[in-house]
Simulated scan of single mutants.
Amino acid sequence: MSELRVHNFTISLDGFGTGVGQAPDAPFGHAGERLHQWMFATRFWADMTGAEGGGTGADHAFAAMHEPGIGAEIMGAGKFGPPGWQDDPEYRGWWGDEPPFRTPVFVLTHRPRPSIEMKGGTTFHFLSASPAEALETAREAAGGKDVRLGGGPSVVRDFLAEGLVDHMHVVQVPVLLGRGVRLWDGLESLEDAFDIEAVSTPSGVTHLTFTAKRR
């Protein structure tokens, strides 16, 4: 069976995966771009955005695992757009006409709408479903490949709580946000379900890799 994977999910030292005040010009609220500076310096990010340069060290190696073997993605409503996007029938996501996913993407929302086919191979589907139901649907669409769980923090937390995540890459960055949405709340003893490895890099971040123990 295909796996459910989380990649490049970045949190602050105090565990927040996003800040407060999310808006069209501030996808991560008051956190701004501080959580993701480590990624912006990698060749992975340069290749994704069409820029030149970028480092090829450990941060790049971890970041680049985001792409291979993925056949579909699941994300929450907050990753697809700012609060209130459901009220705009013309809204098509943060990423413009050609989103970077290039697979079916299943957006979890209590207000489903018709699917949106974008340039480059991305099609957004909108589901009101439990984590297990959403994963079953995404696996069917993935055609035997793995499914990526994109976030935000509350969505990742829900899938972890139900024991559905097979592999998770979390990046802890040396900033304090103080407020926002935390990843770890309610996940006491999560270490019992995963083998965990930690790698720190010269950029100052720590890559935490969680691999589900055999059930």
Rank of each mutant, 00 (worst) to 15 (best):
Q86I: 09
Q86L: 07
D87M: 07
D87E: 15
D88S: 10
D88G: 02
E90D: 14
E90K: 08
Y91T: 04
R92I: 11
R92V: 14
W94L: 13
W94K: 01
G96E: 13
G96R: 08
G96A: 06
D97T: 15
E98T: 15
P99A: 11
P99F: 11
P100T: 10
P100C: 07
R102V: 04
R102F: 00
T103N: 15
T103V: 15
T103P: 11
T103D: 13
P104F: 13
V105T: 05
F106R: 04
F106V: 01
V107T: 05
V107G: 05
V107L: 08
V107Y: 07
L108Q: 10
L108T: 09
H110C: 07
R111F: 02
R111K: 09
P112W: 11
R113S: 07
R113V: 09
P114H: 02
S115K: 11
I116S: 04
E117P: 01
E117I: 03
M118P: 02
M118L: 09
M118W: 03
K119F: 12
G121R: 12
T122G: 08
T122S: 13
T122Y: 07
T123H: 12
F124Q: 10
F124A: 06
H125K: 03
H125S: 10
S128D: 14
A129S: 14
A129T: 13
A129P: 09
S130Q: 10
P131A: 05
A134V: 09
A134P: 08
L135H: 11
L135K: 08
T137P: 00
T137I: 07
T137C: 00
A138N: 03
A138R: 03
R139P: 04
E140M: 10
E140C: 00
G143K: 06
G144N: 08
K145N: 12
V147L: 07
V147P: 01
R148C: 11
L149N: 11
G150W: 09
G150D: 15
G151T: 11
G151N: 10
G152H: 07
G152Q: 03
G152S: 14
G152I: 04
P153V: 05
P153T: 08
S154H: 01
S154F: 02
V155F: 05
V156N: 02
R157N: 13
L164F: 01
L164G: 04
L164C: 01
V165G: 04
V165S: 06
V165F: 06
D166S: 12
D166E: 13
H167A: 09
M168V: 05
M168A: 12
H169D: 09
H169K: 00
V170H: 03
V171R: 00
Q172S: 04
P174T: 06
P174E: 03
V175C: 05
V175E: 07
V175H: 02
L176Q: 11
L176K: 10
L176P: 08
L177E: 05
G178H: 04
V181A: 00
R182Q: 03
W184S: 01
D185P: 00
D185L: 05
D185G: 01
G186N: 06
L187F: 03
E188W: 12
S189I: 08
L190R: 10
L190E: 10
L190K: 02
L190S: 07
E191A: 15
E191H: 15
D192E: 14
A193Q: 15
F194Y: 15
D195T: 15
D195Q: 14
I196L: 13
I196F: 08
I196D: 12
A198Q: 15
V199S: 09
S200Q: 12
S200F: 02
S200Y: 07
T201C: 03
S203N: 00
